[in-house]
């Protein structure tokens, strides 16, 4: 350890995280997003009011990693669970953390209607274009031509549809306060994503309503790419299909 007299800690683990280890694969952006969410909870000082909702998917254990109340939702229903929590107790700060299969396939109805009602919740949408937990099947966000275990020849848009533009879809609605798409492929984008998550949470605390932060994430295991190569792939390819930036900001 550095000597206390001469060195100070400039990067520490967020206090909203407990000591448990993440269960994600090596190099998976889920861990980074989990840490950014915890950082935002710290920054806003809402740890004692927060309920973290974990989805079904690779983040299924995530409710166990925060020093906050947590709940596990059934596949796709996190936005409905969040609605129930928030309507029952509006003082809670409710964070729904969901992947693309969860939010954009099986949970599309719950996602859109919670957004359309302007539920005062914060939705973190992890778009890694694949079903990671179940072994790399095609997701609603899988890119045209991208291979997955359930589209071994690549996604054929003629029969399998196009990547679902979730942030753009939610941005068409009247109610959401903040809709943005972020990436994590380099430190600058990580810093921007951190700010976006913080803003989304702050809007909830300030009573401004619904926010969705879509984050382009890697799945090095499912994509069969080394983590650093996967980040380069996001920069070169994925951000072309899913443009970054704020789509709605009614703060």
């Amino acid at each position: 350890m550095p000597e206390a007299e001469t060195m100070v800690k400039v990067f520490a683990r967020p206090t909203s995280l407990n000591e448990k280890h993440f269960t994600y694969c090596p190099g998976c952006d889920h861990g980074l997003i989990t840490r950014l969410v915890a950082g935002a909870i710290d920054k806003l000082g809402v740890q004692e009011r927060t309920v973290f909702i974990a989805p079904v998917g690779c983040a299924v254990f995530a409710y166990e990693w925060f020093r906050c109340d947590g709940i596990q939702a059934s596949h796709g229903r996190a936005a409905a669970v969040a609605t129930g929590l928030k309507r029952a107790n509006p003082d809670l700060v409710v964070i729904s953390y969901q992947g693309d299969g969860d939010l954009a396939a099986i949970g599309t109805a719950e996602t859109i209607h919670a957004a359309n009602r302007g539920e005062a919740i914060t939705v973190i949408f992890v778009n890694n274009q694949i079903y990671g937990m179940t072994g790399g099947q095609m997701a609603p966000t899988t890119l045209p031509g991208q291979r997955a275990t359930s589209c071994p020849e690549g996604r054929d848009v003629a029969t399998m549809g196009h990547p679902l533009p979730v942030a753009e879809m939610i941005a068409t609605l009247a109610a959401p306060a903040y809709v943005t798409r972020q990436s994590l492929h380099d430190p600058r984008h990580v810093a921007q994503a951190a700010k976006a998550i913080e803003k989304a949470l702050r809007y909830q605390v300030e009573g401004k309503g619904y926010s969705l932060v879509e984050i382009l994430a890697t799945c090095p295991t499912g994509w069969r790419m080394p983590p650093a190569v996967a980040h380069q792939h996001v920069a070169d390819v994925v951000t072309g299909a899913f443009p970054l930036g704020d789509l709605v900001d009614r703060g």
Partner: peptide, 11 residues
């Protein structure tokens, strides 16, 4: 599932 959330909130 809204009931699940509200019940979890204790009401």
């Amino acid at each position: 599932n809204m009931c699940y959330g509200a019940a979890a909130a204790g009401v």
